[in-house]
Amino acid sequence: MDTYSLEGELTIFTAAQLKPELLNFLHSSTAPELNLSAVTECDTAGLQLLILLKREATLTGKSISFMMHSKAVIEVLELARLTSQFGDPIVLAHS
């Protein structure tokens, strides 16, 4: 199992740079896992990348897991009501 840890922004500012990195990671790994705990910000561009990864994984017969969602990521997934579609367990941080 390979894990890729995203750090900082997952936004329009980083999307262009992250796209090839994330796709490379997906293609090079058999059981890819994306650690989202250090994502500080997420916007539509970021969300699009997450959707792209899920879709690409399915197309290539793989499964990519998102884990340790940060608050910013949870908020966006909830807003877009994609939590269940992505199907990753979400760990709610204790308040």
């Binding site: 796709l23 561009a45 699009q48 959707i51 994609l82």
Partner: peptide, 18 residues
Amino acid sequence: ELSTFAHNMPDAEHMDPE
């Protein structure tokens, strides 16, 4: 209710992240 649609997104190669 809210549904997000990504059907306009092209394949990975042609998808422009911006």
